[in-house]
Amino acid sequence: MRNVLISGASIGGPALAYWLTRYGFKVTVVEKAPTLRPGGQAVDFKGETHLTVLRRMGILDDLRRVQTGGTDQEIVDANGRKLAILPGEFTGGALEIKRGDLARILYDRTAADCEYVFGDSITSLTDTPGGVQVTFERTTPRTYDLVVGADGIHSNVRRLTFGPESDYVRHLGYYYALVDIDGDFGGKPQLYNEPGRMVATGGPKAPAFFVFASGPLSYDRYDAGQQKEILARAYRGMGWRTPQIMAAVRHSDSVYLDSISQVRIDRYSQGRVALLGDAGYGNTLGGFGSGLAMVGAYVLAGELAAADGDHRPAFAEYERQFKQYAKIARNGNAGPFLAPATAARIRMRNMMFRSSFLMGLMTKMGDKFATDIALKSY
């Protein structure tokens, strides 16, 4: 089983391609976007396990050269007065980097050894005794020994293999948005809350970052105009500098709006098809997505190599190891933490940020979850 198709060229997909090509597999990566997506929110890695995988890939020094560094963010009231500090070491982990920079480094390390197909998407998967027959929107149909979905929380591979998204993705009652905006919004990163709503500028996620409570919304995730209108309705009447920020949003060319959701699936593989990263164990803004994807790629590729390409024992061992490690993605909801539902809960959250003891405890807990796996040396 040496011919592998990976769907998704963001983080997990190229990381898996890196390891598989080292083990002698022939790899194709298909990506719906026309090119690598630059910029994007900051992602972070926590604890020695994450750093060990990056070190074994030989990219840790490259990432450190372009890391953003954890940035403190002021939590302010409607008049701009500082209420608390969201510490950079809490949000930035051991290493923080923009998603686009990470994707570029991974692509550069793999482009010469595998095939990348941009601007295309899988339309059907047929698992047969001789391989997985795959059709695409544009490319000629091909047969692969194995297929891996590393295509995010809205995974196309998961939908085609396991069933509709509604069966496996649970909406957690919030939406978030990342928007590139122009203008002077005070220089220092700041965050402002009203019940069920948060807006932040200059922080690690994006020039403008929004989180708001909402039931499921129907909209086109590729239509920036619809997303801007949703944001305009959600933030109408909000204080602080929100009106100026929303005016800048109207003129932005880069808007990304999505739900805060959690993937709940009992298994990570079916037949010759497996899931990696957010496709199998995603939890939006949960703080562990990139680390889980990178460690998952290391384990999945290593088990395939150890089994000489036999997917049955390899997928079973990958799942056995990862069910325990990925449990952090099955718990928690960043929405109530970032946009508490009441003024009292906002005050309680801010009090926690003012406690060095509680912040230290939360950081240690994050590191504990991030290192809760014994990495094999494949």
Score class of each variant (00 low, 15 high):
2 R>P: 07
4 V>D: 10
5 L>N: 05
7 S>C: 13
8 G>K: 03
11 I>W: 08
15 A>K: 07
20 L>F: 09
27 V>H: 07
27 V>E: 06
30 V>K: 04
30 V>T: 10
34 P>C: 01
35 T>S: 10
36 L>Q: 10
38 P>E: 12
49 T>C: 14
51 L>I: 12
52 T>S: 15
52 T>A: 15
53 V>P: 08
59 I>N: 07
60 L>Q: 06
61 D>K: 15
62 D>V: 06
63 L>E: 06
63 L>V: 10
64 R>L: 12
80 G>Q: 02
81 R>W: 08
83 L>R: 14
84 A>M: 00
86 L>Y: 14
90 F>Q: 10
92 G>E: 04
94 A>K: 09
99 R>Q: 10
101 D>N: 14
102 L>D: 07
105 I>W: 09
109 R>Y: 10
110 T>G: 09
111 A>I: 13
111 A>P: 00
112 A>I: 01
117 V>E: 01
119 G>K: 01
124 S>H: 11
130 G>M: 09
130 G>F: 08
131 G>R: 01
132 V>W: 04
134 V>I: 03
136 F>Q: 02
138 R>W: 03
138 R>K: 14
145 D>L: 08
146 L>G: 08
148 V>M: 05
149 G>P: 06
149 G>L: 05
150 A>M: 05
161 T>N: 11
161 T>P: 01
172 L>E: 12
174 Y>C: 10
175 Y>Q: 04
176 Y>R: 02
176 Y>D: 10
180 D>H: 14
182 D>I: 05
190 Q>E: 14
192 Y>T: 05
192 Y>M: 07
198 M>E: 10
199 V>T: 13
205 K>W: 12
208 A>L: 15
211 V>A: 03
212 F>M: 04
219 Y>E: 01
226 Q>S: 11
227 Q>F: 04
231 L>Q: 04
234 A>W: 00
235 Y>H: 00
236 R>T: 12
237 G>C: 03
238 M>D: 02
240 W>M: 05
243 P>L: 04
247 A>M: 06
248 A>W: 02
251 H>Q: 14
253 D>L: 09
253 D>M: 06
258 D>P: 00
259 S>W: 02
260 I>P: 00
262 Q>H: 05
264 R>C: 06
265 I>D: 00
266 D>R: 14
267 R>N: 11
269 S>I: 03
270 Q>M: 12
270 Q>V: 12
275 L>G: 01
278 D>Y: 01
279 A>F: 02
280 G>N: 02
283 N>H: 03
284 T>R: 05
287 G>F: 03
296 G>A: 07
296 G>T: 07
298 Y>A: 04
299 V>H: 02
309 G>D: 05
314 A>P: 02
319 E>G: 07
323 K>M: 13
324 Q>I: 12
324 Q>V: 14
324 Q>T: 15
326 A>G: 13
326 A>Y: 05
327 K>I: 13
328 I>A: 15
330 R>E: 13
330 R>W: 04
334 A>W: 03
337 F>G: 07
338 L>H: 01
341 A>D: 13
344 A>F: 09
347 R>N: 05
349 R>W: 01
351 M>T: 08
351 M>L: 13
352 M>Q: 07
354 R>C: 10
358 L>T: 11
359 M>R: 09
360 G>W: 02
362 M>Y: 07
362 M>G: 11
362 M>K: 12
365 M>E: 13
368 K>R: 15
374 A>Y: 09
378 Y>Q: 11
